[in-house]
Simulated scan of single mutants.
Amino acid sequence: MEIETDIQRIWADLEWLANKPRPAESDRLEECRQYCEQILNSAGWQVERRNFEAADSAGTSRKGINLVTTSANQAEGGAKFILGAHLDSRPETPGADDNASAVAVLLEVARLLGPELTADAAVSTPVQLELAVFDLEENGMLGGAYHAASCRAAGESVCGMVSLEMLGYCSEKPGSQTFPPELADRFPDTGNFIGIVGNQVSDPLIRHFSRAFNSVPNLPCESLQVPDNGLTFPPTRLSDHSPFWDEGFAALMITDTSFMRNPHYHLPSDTPETLDRGFLHNVAEGVLRATRKIVTDGLR
C-alpha cells in the first residue's frame, strides 16, 4: 500500500507550532489558530470558529475557541466521525509532542482528504468527517467538553470520535516504557508503539484503528479498553476524548502514552528535536488510512 502522508509537511507544521508556548488565551495561541485555519481553508475546508466560556478546575472562567470543519459528503441519514486534537500548550513548554505533533497530523489528514471530501462534486459517503482543533485542553479538556455537549444537545449521530494526543515520541530502549503496576505485565516495556485507548462502547473503533496501524510497516500498536469511562484509571481520561465518553459516545485516544514514556512532558525541553520523525510519519499514515476507510465504508 502506497504511503501518502508527507513527513516534510508534517514536520514543518510541527516546528512552526512548537516555536514557543501556546497557553490559554495567549496571542501566540491565536497565531497558531490562524495558521491552522489557513491550512484548512487551503485544503478546501470551511472553518467555523466556535467560541465558548467555561470554568477550569480552579473555578477560573476561561474563554476558548474551537475550530470545527465538516465535509460536504454526507449521505442522507449518515453518521459523523470526529477527528480532533488540542492546540493549546502549558505556559512553560513549547509543546512539540504535547500537542503540536497531533495537530500536525490532523492538518496532514485535512490536506489529503480535503480534495476528496470538500469539492462540489464530492461523492456521497456513509460517514461525514468533522475535524476539530480543540482549545483549553490543558485547563481540563474544556474545548472537548464543550464540543461533546454540543453534539449531544443537537442529537447528532456520532459513530465515533478520536482524540490525537501526543504522537511523536518513540524509544527503542528496553525499559523506556512504564505503566502502573496493574498494567505492567500486559504491555511491552519498550516505548516504540502507538497506543489506542477506548472505553466500554468503543470496540468497533479499537478494532478499526488497530487494523489501520497494523497495515503500516514498522508501526507496533497496542490497545487498551477500560470500563466505566476510565474513571477507575484516570490517566486514560487525559485528553478530549473523555468528555465524549461521558456523553455516551464511542471515542478513542491515540497516543504515544505521554508521561509514561516521554521524559519531556510539560517541560521546556518538549521540543521537536526530541521526537522521532519516522515514528510520527508512520502514525500519521495509520490515522489517514483509518479515517478514510471510516468515511468511505462506514465503521465495521
Rank of each mutant, 00 (worst) to 15 (best):
K173P: 02
E53Y: 00
D27A: 10
V226Q: 10
F279Y: 14
R289P: 14
E48I: 00
S269H: 01
A284V: 07
S57G: 04
H208I: 04
Y146T: 12
S269Y: 01
G144V: 02
R211L: 11
N229H: 14
L275M: 12
V216M: 11
F213L: 15
V158W: 09
V127K: 06
D203M: 10
S258T: 07
G198P: 04
V158T: 11
D13E: 02
R33D: 04
R111V: 03
G44L: 07
T70F: 03
Y265R: 08
D88I: 01
T5F: 11
T255Q: 04
G78V: 02
G175N: 12
A79S: 12
T93K: 03
T232D: 14
A184N: 09
D297F: 00
E92D: 10
R207G: 11
R292N: 08
D189S: 15
H266F: 03
A58E: 08
N262G: 02
A58C: 00
E156V: 10
P204S: 12
T178G: 13
P204T: 11
S61L: 11
S42E: 13
D185F: 02
G78Y: 08
P217H: 09
S210E: 15
L219Y: 15
S57H: 09
N192W: 13
G95L: 04
S210K: 15
L183M: 14
I294G: 01
A104N: 04
S124E: 13
H281R: 05
